[in-house]
């Protein structure tokens, strides 16, 4: 499923909303998660999982083509930990 399909599904379930509104809602959600992570905050969504950031220390890397050493600055990367309920749902077999 891609974003436009998600928008479509939500719009179908809410005929009183314009597709444009649904797009704005989804963008607002994703944007807020992004801004929270940029501040170093966590976003915990029960039944789904939790977004957080982890920092990667500065290191000396190498340009794989030339072998030249390059300094890589400390950076932060987004991290998602799947929630307990979601993990269980992924492994629930149909008919069980």
């Amino acid at each position: 499923m891609i974003k436009s399909e998600l928008v479509q599904r939500i719009a179908e379930a809410n005929p009183h909303l314009y597709q444009r509104d649904v797009e704005n809602i989804i963008d607002a959600i994703l944007d807020e998660v992004t801004r929270a992570l940029a501040r170093g905050d966590r976003v915990e969504l029960r039944g789904f999982g939790a977004f957080s950031v982890k920092s990667r220390p500065a290191r000396t890397g190498r340009n794989p083509r030339t072998g030249a050493q390059v300094k890589v600055m400390e950076k932060v990367v987004p991290y998602f930990k799947t929630g307990k309920e979601m993990r269980e749902r992924l492994n629930r077999r149909a008919g069980k």
Partner: peptide
């Protein structure tokens, strides 16, 4: 760090 939830979204 703060933790955001559904309510914040």
């Amino acid at each position: 760090p703060k933790t955001l939830t559904r309510a914040d979204l």
